[in-house]
Amino acid sequence: MVVKRHLLEAADLDRDDATLVLDTAAQIESALAGREVKKLPTLRGRTVVNLFYEDSTRTRISFELAAKRLSADVINFSAKGSSVSKGESLKDTALTLEAMGSDAIVVRHGASGAPHRLAQWVQGSVVNAGDGTHEHPTQALLDAYTIRQRLGRLDGVRVVIVGDVLHSRVARSNVWLLATLGAEVTLVAPPTLLPVGVGSWPVTVGYDLDAVLPKADVVMMLRVQAERMNASFFPSAREYSRRYGLDARRMGTLPDEAIVMHPGPMNRGMEIAAEVADSARSTIVDQVGNGVSVRMAVLYLLLGGAPGSE
């Protein structure tokens, strides 16, 4: 059971934990479906702090909505324009927030492992909302939720993750979570955008997108930042798009039921063509909606129990 105190990485979750989160999210979604009052009293009196050191409006809003639908009090603490920009350390910030009565800190940080450090310093729960190039566990949970919703299962589902795996916390979290849930994961990227050590991951690695698409149930396109081009990870946006982008022709080679995912924000025309992003196969809008349900499930499972209980 996920009666752990923190959600730091998808790699921490075993199959039962992960399934419980997904099942809980499904129950919450159906409990709220069609209701006028989309609010539950579950976390009344609890305080959730969104501590965001990087701009990410969509993730922040998703967590905020999740906490509010569970009746928690929500404080948004953005590093910009705060004491943080005056040099206050992560530790001091965390201890200050906790002294103000926060029960959970949802943290987005540019440094890998920052949520782990936070968890060593505070009594309350820590939820990783994306740390550096490490993990983004709730994104993986909502992706798994979306796959299960669309395809009805995760076991044996063939998922192809395409793009900048090296710098992607979404890819890392998805690799561990999907493998734990029985999916078969293939990574496709230029070798420059795969980490040394990827051989130890529970995945198949390939360089040829066209070769894997006809056998894919899910294609997950990762955002590729143009500045990678300047560091010679690939020669040009055009070449990247030609070799690793998902356009209508490539989408046509997918099996009929296959879906296309993207964690957002998208670079239309770079890793994904507009007509693909807007097609019926695309789950991009579903992913956003499912994010709220999954984050409600996570907050409920972490905070619903006795304070400080393991």
Partner: peptide, 13 residues
């Protein structure tokens, strides 16, 4: 160190 662990921990190798 760049290797299996840096790949998983998301720390530059």
């Amino acid at each position: 160190n760049e290797g299996d662990r840096s790949a998983r921990l998301g720390l530059t190798g």
